[in-house]
């Protein structure tokens, strides 16, 4: 390759097949942490009641009768999350679009929106359980709120941050309001909207587990975690926390892949 630097040219050639270098680099830190974790619990550096060795933790979802509840729990949580997430990004996107496109709407809504947004999400839980009870409705509303706020914010911001240069071109070409919206504003705001969706997703997932933990009634990773805590089962708690992280990671990866496929390589992306 012509553009190689000298150091790159001198480096060993990359492996022809199998996972790339990026994969191994990504795995390195978590693998090191697992090794430290194992050493710490086996050598008694940390109370092994609190820090269960990784080998035991890994087996819990398969061999332990209580641990096996995890799988249905993940299914229930993901379904719940998808429902709330969808509602959240649709409602949040609509609100953000309205505020981004209409100055009148922005002036009217933005101050209240900003104020409400400051409320820590978990403070909503008592209100939601009082209004909707402890069933699915309250949880899904909570998840929708978790997803909706960042979506609305990013959509609004994306639409407001259109470079003046493009707006001037649209004015000079005398594009209609509708064309301006569909051909200029929304496409220009897409990267910001995509980021909004990503943030909304991870918020929705955390919100799902949080809602289950706090509201309880029905299956879920949060319920699994909560019960583990109640029964002093640290192994279950660690499994729950790791599940929370891993599923979140997987969801995020899938979303990014999906977004990359939908948004053509039009040079708009900064990745």
């Amino acid at each position: 390759m012509v553009d190689q630097t000298v150091s790159e040219a001198l480096a060993k050639p990359a492996a022809a097949a199998g996972p790339g270098r990026d994969f191994w680099r990504g795995i390195a830190v978590p693998a090191a942490l697992v090794v430290i974790w194992s050493a710490a619990s086996h050598l008694g550096l940390v109370d092994s009641r609190l820090l269960v060795p990784p080998e035991r933790v890994a087996l819990v979802p398969f061999l332990d009768a209580d641990g096996r509840e995890l799988w249905l729990g993940i299914t229930a949580s993901v379904l719940r999350m998808l429902a709330g997430f969808t509602i959240g990004i649709l409602a949040g996107g609509a609100l953000g679009l309205l505020m981004g496109v209409s100055r009148f709407a922005e002036r009217g809504i933005a101050p209240s929106f900003t104020a409400v947004r400051q409320i820590t999400l978990f403070a909503w839980i008592p209100l939601l359980t009082a209004w909707f009870g402890n069933g699915e409705a309250a949880k899904i509303v909570f998840i929708a709120l978790s997803a909706g706020f960042p979506m609305a914010l990013n959509t609004h911001q994306g639409l407001r941050d259109i470079p003046i240069a493009f707006v001037e071109v649209a004015r000079v070409l005398r594009l209609s309001r509708r064309r301006l919206l569909t051909q200029v504003l929304v496409p220009s705001a897409l990267p910001a909207i995509a980021i909004g969706i990503e943030i909304a997703l991870i918020n929705a997932w955390i919100g799902t587990v949080g809602a289950e933990y706090a509201m309880g009634l029905g299956r879920g990773v949060g319920a699994f975690l909560a019960e583990g805590r109640e029964q002093f089962r640290m192994d279950i708690v660690i499994v729950g926390v790791l599940t929370l992280a891993l599923v979140g990671f997987v969801l995020n990866t899938l979303l990014r892949a999906g977004v990359a496929r939908l948004m053509p390589a039009s040079g708009n992306s900064r990745r």
């Binding site: 240069a165 001037e168 200029v184 496409p187 220009s188 897409l190 040079g267 708009n268």
Partner: peptide, 14 residues
């Protein structure tokens, strides 16, 4: 009247 600016200002998504 039409104008061409110093930056091409083409829309990157089109």
């Amino acid at each position: 009247r039409s104008i061409v600016f110093q930056e091409h200002r083409l829309f990157p998504w089109l």
